[in-house]
Amino acid sequence: MLLESIISITSLSVGIFLCVILIYLLHQYKNEKGSTFFLMLIISILVWAAAFMFEMIVSSENLMMLFAKIQYIGVSFVPVAWFSFCSIYAGKFDNIVRGRLFYLLTIIPILTIILVFTNESHGLIWSKIDFSNIGVFKMLTPIHGTWFWIHTTYSYLLIATGSLLIIWKSLSISSTHIKRSILLISAVVLPWVANMVYLLKMTGFDYTVLTSVASISLLFLGVYGYKLVNVIPIARNIVIEGLDDAVVVLDENYRVVDMNPSAERLLEVSTDKAIGLGASQVFDRCPEIIRLYKSKKSEKRSICIKEKNGVNKYYAVKASPLYDKSKRVLGKLIVIRDITEIKQTENELKEKIEELERYKKVTVGRELKMIELKKQIEEFQRKLSGGDDVPVF
């Protein structure tokens, strides 16, 4: 039991430390879409974990109650933050979380926090409060009241909806994004599975916050390792895997969000490696494209790229802005079409036309000379015929 207690406190301490690091990292991406709700999620978990740790280590029952109540500040907002982030990530219900309707999502969490801190007056959160020794710790083991179950149902509904949005999005995106989706789902679902086990009385110890440590670690990996926040999918449904044209999607900061296999072959880089990189790095072989996608309006241009074997390849490039429902620019869609055969045909036709022009000049010149010669012959004949009238001496 002592070893389990030490592991619990150590895990929570590590989790809190990771939360602080995450908050620092996310602050650097404060202007990214979805980062506000992602930050809200981390702060909520931080408050939850810190309050739970202090509840474990204090000996006073009054302080235990205080920290148990503080936990609900974090617990209540985790589902809202999760659902909001998932909505923006998947591009569904994002009009709700971006506008005033978002505040409707916070009504139950705010009421829950108020009821938690006034529980002594009504018992809607904890109908009966008791303390039990679990290992070396004295822990709060209450009987939950009516509003607790309302809050729990609402929280599970938001968590489940957010997870389904991520799963739905994963069905139409590349393997790179599926890994991120699984990472996100695991990160937030793990604590709630542990919480369900606790609520069903399958264990006397609430492992919810301890599993949050694993959750925090996954989130840390997502942000620091996979650059999760700054690669939120923008237009995957536009990118058709089997399209012959190379298609690259950029975010508003000109970072690669996605690309199809044709783009991988053309740019000689895999999607896994390209995502999150600046477009100037990916298009380093094509400086003309860099100038093109930085234009604020839709632009198109023909470019020539010299292959490693020395052969010139020609491409038609079109860069178009991507807009959301409110006409705000989300990024750029770059479509690159191989027009080498068309260009070669054009060059062949041009050569044929030039050859015909030269032939025409030669032919016309010869015809003019024949006409001039004919005129001279006619003039000579006229003079000869006119000579018959000249008197002979």
Rank of each mutant, 00 (worst) to 15 (best):
L3N: 00
L3D: 00
E4R: 02
I9F: 03
Y24E: 08
L26S: 02
L26V: 02
H27G: 08
H27Y: 04
T36G: 11
I45K: 07
A49I: 14
E55Y: 05
M56D: 02
N62W: 06
M64W: 08
Y72S: 01
F77W: 14
P79R: 04
S84V: 03
F85V: 06
G91A: 04
V116S: 04
L124G: 12
W126V: 10
K128V: 11
D130K: 11
S132Q: 14
V136K: 13
F137N: 08
F137Q: 10
K138R: 07
W147N: 09
Y156P: 00
T161F: 01
I173M: 15
A187C: 06
L190S: 14
N195S: 06
L200Q: 12
T203S: 15
G222W: 01
V223K: 02
P233D: 01
I238Y: 13
G242F: 06
D244Q: 15
A246M: 06
L250C: 00
N253V: 11
V256T: 05
P261E: 14
S262D: 10
A279Y: 01
S280W: 10
D284M: 11
L292P: 05
S298M: 07
E307D: 11
A319Q: 12
L322I: 15
R328S: 12
L333N: 14
D338R: 11
T340Y: 02
Q344Y: 06
K352E: 04
L356P: 00
V362G: 13
E367T: 10
L368V: 13
L368E: 15
E378P: 04
E379N: 12
Q381W: 07
G386E: 14
